[in-house]
Design a protein around this nucleic acid. Structure first.
Lengths: 250, 250
DNA sequence: CGCACACTTGAGTAATGTCAAAGAGTGTGG
DNA sequence: CCACACTCTTTGACATTACTCAAGTGTGCG
């Protein structure tokens, strides 16, 4: 097995920058300001903490299964998650990779229509669905924020449809790398170094390709000097703007 | 030109069933209960009517253009709309077809990231964005409803990603026909007769195929006795359940 | 050290795209 | 009212991208 991440314990969550320590786990959350929780005032945080339960999942653990009652919503605090759907014969489509700060659970009604699996070891907050919904009534700003999140997820989903329906393998991979690159700053990493904790098979299932095509396309991009593929895994982007342009069909 | 719908005026909007006539255009709206507006009480409807402007668009008219300031949100009351994105070289991906009762505008921030074009002659309500957002503060049920709409759109988008990324041409078309069929009852049409007001090219751009492949696949399904393609256009589904099964990869 | 697994590379295939042309439906103008 | 022009759709022949199957390479873990 690959298990690049499973073995090593996660470092402790970073304390929130530039603020006094406050009571409760939410106040210490490293990604609070990135997430839904950022709109709750300090003195109301205990209300949020009351319905939140911090949890961890090992790499490859499936913590949401399509078809199960949608009892919980989640906020990823650390690590990488893949969200996917399956066809009856096992074909898989990954609908998104989630990182620290990302919200999980919109788009579910009574039962989950998707599954979610930890790609690396993952930390997340689990909210009881009904309790969170009741809280929204009291904190309208949180509901507004959730609507904003849903809205941007929708925009991202439409973007992904363009990718899946109309882009070539080369454009798909270039877009994928560019999108990951853009997320790096908020995760505190340099934009040109990507860890790629997900397997080639996962990348393929996200881009609507096969592992072989993903692999060949990586090789092709390396051959053109656009990326490097260092020994230990990951990618280094050598010409981000060129990649971005390829991704746009340029 | 095709113009199957452009020439004939739309019939007058059906009055809402089972209620007394009330003042204002919203009270008479045929699709109110299907849409966001359904959560507003009768006696508050004038508030909604004050920020809504009923409009019409001829077939092939583009009434939302990607990149324009997102000043309005829309509620389709009658007709069919296509929502799409373009790549710089003209490749098109249709992200959805909208029908009476559907909401349009979620997923936009400052500027629209998508374009919308009338497929048939269309009637819609146009809401000034800021005014609608202010109204949401007063009518939390409307905001909840909007979140629910965003949520189900997200689920539909994920479903479409599976289609685009992992299904064959045959499965794509079977899924498309099945989905349209499921929407027919709420539009007041029989489930097994589909008008298909959109062109083969539009269907192709929705399914990530070419017109030729769509056409060949229609012919193939007809050859198997699953559908009929009557002279005047449209489709008749002869074996809905078989189509549904094909669409699921069965 | 060797097994497992992931990744890469190669060869051949299949599904879908491209190019081209003919058929069908519709509206227009003579 | 008919003929033409236009567009949409269908069909055919061929090209190409990406998939499938298969083998080889590399890496980590027991």
């Amino acid at each position: 097995m690959k298990e690049k991440y499973a073995g090593s314990p996660l470092p402790p969550a970073r304390p929130r920058l530039g603020s006094m320590p406050a009571a409760g786990p939410c106040a210490a959350c490293a990604v609070r300001m990135l997430s839904v929780c950022g709109v709750i005032q300090e003195n109301d945080l205990h209300r949020l903490a009351a319905i939140a339960k911090a949890q961890e999942a090992e790499a490859h653990h499936t913590f949401v299964t399509a078809g199960d009652p949608a009892a919980f919503l989640f906020n990823i605090t650390e690590g990488v998650v893949k969200v996917y759907r399956l066809l009856s014969d096992g074909r898989q489509q990954i609908t998104g990779f989630l990182f620290g700060g990302d919200f999980l659970g919109l788009g579910a009604d009574d039962t989950y229509a998707f599954s979610a699996e930890a790609v690396t070891r993952v930390r997340y907050c689990r909210f009881e669905r009904g309790a969170l919904m009741r809280l929204l009534v009291e904190f309208p700003r949180m509901e507004q924020r959730l609507l904003g999140i849903a809205s941007s997820e929708l925009a991202a989903a439409q973007e992904q449809m363009v990718l899946l329906g109309r882009k070539t393998a080369r454009e798909k991979l270039a877009t994928f790398l560019t999108m990951l690159s853009r997320r790096m700053p908020s995760l505190g990493n340099p934009r040109d170094r990507l860890d790629l904790p997900m397997s080639r098979a996962d990348i393929a299932d996200y881009l609507g390709l096969t592992t072989e095509t993903v692999s060949r396309t990586f090789t092709q991009l390396r051959g053109e000097g656009l990326i490097e593929l260092p020994k230990g895994g990951g990618v280094r982007l050598r010409r981000e703007s060129a990649l971005a342009e390829i991704g746009e069909g340029g």
